[in-house]
Every structure is written in structure tokens, then in C-alpha cells.
Design a binder for these strands. Structure first.
Lengths: 166, 166
DNA sequence: ACCTGAACACCGTTCAAGT
DNA sequence: ACCTGAACACCGTTCAAGT
């Protein structure tokens, strides 16, 4: 708060005339960042799989553009503002087009969220990685995200997942 | 630090006779918690897929037993102590038994880590979830983790993943 | 080797008061 | 409506001093 106040050339407590608390401010900023995520191109509407790939990749990239925010994001256990909800509904729509509905769709949504935010949070330095390894390049990590997302989407939209009873 | 000191009935600064800093202390605790994760039953060694499922589930459960620690875990971008490395090597061994080696194995390892820690971090309250939804029960979230892990492992050990060039 | 008291440079937040 | 000064109850950490 004090750093924000300095950037605004204002006393720290002046912020509290506009925002209730630090966490409320963070929630506002998080949802505003999520507004930058563009909805997938409607021309790809006949291919919900690539629509999902596109949407989660866009979300991942937006989060990477704000690296300082992602830890706060996780500390707040994710955003729940209007833009977060908008993205969630788009994902559910695409999943439905891929034949995944009901409880399975909600599970898939959670899995995709955890995966995407988690990857953004660990960007650069990952645990369990060999000690002597050089730090990962950003593009290499991006390919890794892409690869894992493909695995996930393949599993989510596979016939066994669609027909499997919960 | 001050809370830890109080639990030890000691002055706050006394801790600095034993630990260099707060982050060093957190790293130590994190790796000690990871020591609780049991290696998968060797009797299942002929089925690396279920070994991986077993190991990641065990890790997930250990993290859930220490919910206060997981956010710190993420803030520290994961542990890199001896126990973390031990788990990473076990995963790589199981992946090799499943036919996944080289760069693809390292990618799979990262994906599994992100997924497991991410799910533990979001235990209970997830973003993008419908606003009016009731909070998830722990067992329900556990089933969700299990389900997603199955999707992931299916994708990782699928023939297309094994033969796909990076 | 292990602890203490005092202090430093921070935090987020509140409250009364000003315009 | 928006800001300020002063203060409160916190932090992690350091340093000199004690045993």
C-alpha cells in the first residue's frame, strides 16, 4: 500500500478513501488483468478443442505478463470477479461443444484452471528439477505448458472421459 | 518468526542463532514435510502408471495435511531440498518404465508437479467457479484431483506422446 | 553455543482533522 | 469527496551484551 501511495504521490492512508483493504485492491487488479484475456476466435467454433487450447494459452500469457501478480493471485486463491466468471463460462461452453457437460465439465474446468495458473506461478524455476540444471528459458517453459495442455485436453475430451460416470 | 518464537517460549531473535532467515526456515520445513511422502509400493513396479498415480496422490495428501504451508510453498516456487529431489527421481524412474524418457520426461515431471501442488494450493476454493456455488467438500476435490491426474497420465503415457518429437 | 533487550526500518490500517 | 498527520499494533532482522 505504501508503495502504491508513493507511485500516486499521496499519503499511504489516502488509498483507504477509494479501497476498503489491501486484499480488496488486489482482487480488483486481478480481475482487471483477466479482462485482457481475449475470447477465442469464433471462426474456430467448430473445433472446441483448439478453442480451449487458444483460451487457456491466452490466459497463461496474460498471467506471464504480470509475474508479480501471480503469487498474490495464488495467495488469494484465485479471482472471482466478473472477468474470471466470464472466462469460466466460455470454457464451459467450449467443453459442452466438445461433448463434456455436467459434473465432468466442472471438474475439467477446475483442472484447466489449476494447470494454467500453476504453470504461470512456477514460470522460470520449478521444484524437483535437478539441482545442477540451468534455469528454464521462457519459450521452453511455454512449449512445456503447451505440451501438457494438449495432454490434458486429450484426456478431457477423450470418449472414456465423456462416458465415464462420476 | 515471532509466532514461532512464542511457541518455543523464546525471544524472537533467538531463532537467528539456528536459522539464517525466514525463507531458509520455510525451505527446511517444506523439505521435511516432503519427507513424509512414501515411495510407491515396489510390488506395483510392473505398472508404472499406477505407481505414478500412487506417488502423486500421496504427495497431494501430504500437502493437504499442511494447508498453511502450501501458499508458502508456492511463494518460494517449490522446494528444492533433498527430499524434493528424491521424489523427482522416483517420478523420472517410473516415467522411464512407462516408456517416457529424455526431454519429454522432464516436461511430464514439470506438468505433474504443477498439477499436484496447484491442486493442493486451491483446495477448497477455486476461481472461475460459479459465484453462487457452495464450497467444495474435501473428498469431492480429492476425486477431482484423481480424475484430472488420470487424464494427465493417460496423455503422458499415450503412444502419441511417447513417439512425438519435441 | 544459545539466549536477551533494545533498536531499526519496515508493514497495513484507523482516526480525527482539514479542504 | 478526498486528502493529511499522527498514531497503533504489528513485521523480520541486527547488534551488542550476557551466560
Amino acid at each position: 500500500m505504501r508503495a502504491v501511495a508513493e507511485r500516486l504521490a499521496v499519503a499511504p492512508n489516502a488509498i483507504y478513501s477509494h479501497v476498503a483493504s489491501k486484499t480488496a485492491l488486489i482482487d480488483d487488479v486481478l480481475d482487471q488483468v483477466l479482462a485482457e484475456v481475449a475470447a477465442p476466435d469464433p471462426s474456430a467454433r467448430d473445433d472446441p478443442g483448439s478453442g480451449l487450447q487458444q483460451l487457456m494459452t491466452a490466459t497463461h500469457e496474460v498471467l506471464l505478463d504480470h509475474p508479480d501478480l501471480v503469487p498474490l493471485y495464488l495467495a488469494r486463491q484465485g479471482a472471482r470477479g466478473p472477468n474470471a466468471q466470464r472466462l469460466g463460462e466460455i470454457v464451459l461452453t467450449l467443453l459442452a461443444q466438445a461433448g463434456v457437460t455436467g459434473p465432468a465439465a466442472r471438474e475439467a474446468l477446475r483442472v484447466l484452471i489449476v494447470y494454467t495458473i500453476g504453470f504461470a506461478a512456477f514460470a522460470g524455476r520449478l521444484p524437483f528439477d535437478g539441482a545442477g540444471e540451468s534455469p528454464l528459458a521462457t519459450d521452453e517453459l511455454g512449449r512445456n505448458f503447451d505440451h501438457g495442455l494438449r495432454w490434458l485436453l486429450a484426456g478431457i475430451t477423450s470418449p472414456s472421459a465423456r462416458t465415464q460416470s462420476p
